[in-house]
């Protein structure tokens, strides 16, 4: 992985934020290179377990971005997303992950600059935190194995 040591994953809805990221590109807005974008139809498709899976597999930060409330292409997908993701962000500490490593935001197709700022800000937040060490969190190839997953901490097991 390039662009420094950390790995960031972005789950973006196709209609707003992905288009916003396209816009940032079309406008040639320089951004840090750690972000890897996964395109989805809607943030309502983002299963919290998918976010946790990303962390478990080695992501150091996960960003979810969709349409502004009221602007959802599917009318209400982002409201469901908001509820789930808000809950998820409050639960991060429980999973042993610094809450700053997870963020969700609303960026429209016309907000290229805002996307660029968000990526930059998010990357700069995670860089000082460094790699995520999921103690007892289970399999991660490039980390030391801490033995078998301790108790119920691993979301993967729960799944």
């Amino acid at each position: 992985m390039s662009g420094g040591d950390i790995k960031l994953v972005g789950f973006l809805c196709n209609w707003c934020s992905y288009a916003g990221a396209d816009m940032a590109g079309t406008s040639r807005m320089a951004q840090p290179a750690e972000m890897r974008i996964v395109r989805l139809p809607c943030t309502g498709r983002v299963n919290p377990l998918l976010v946790l899976k990303a962390f478990q597999e080695g992501a150091d930060g996960v960003l979810v971005s969709g349409c502004h409330p009221g602007d959802c292409h599917y009318n209400e997908g982002n409201y469901y997303a908001h509820r789930r993701l808000e809950l998820l962000s409050r639960m991060m500490a429980v999973y042993g992950i610094e809450p700053e490593r997870f963020r969700y935001t609303w960026i429209s197709a016309s907000e290229g600059a805002r996307w660029a700022e968000t990526v930059t800000g998010f990357t700069e937040t995670i860089r000082p935190l460094g790699r995520l060490n999921l103690a007892g969190g289970g399999a991660r190839d490039d980390d030391h194995h801490q033995g078998p997953a301790a108790g119920s901490a691993s979301p993967a097991e729960k799944r």
């Binding site: 139809p41 309502g44 498709r45 599917y74």
Partner: peptide, 8 residues
């Protein structure tokens, strides 16, 4: 319409 809300 393929939004995927149901899958979650």
């Amino acid at each position: 319409q393929g939004c995927g809300l149901c899958t979650v």
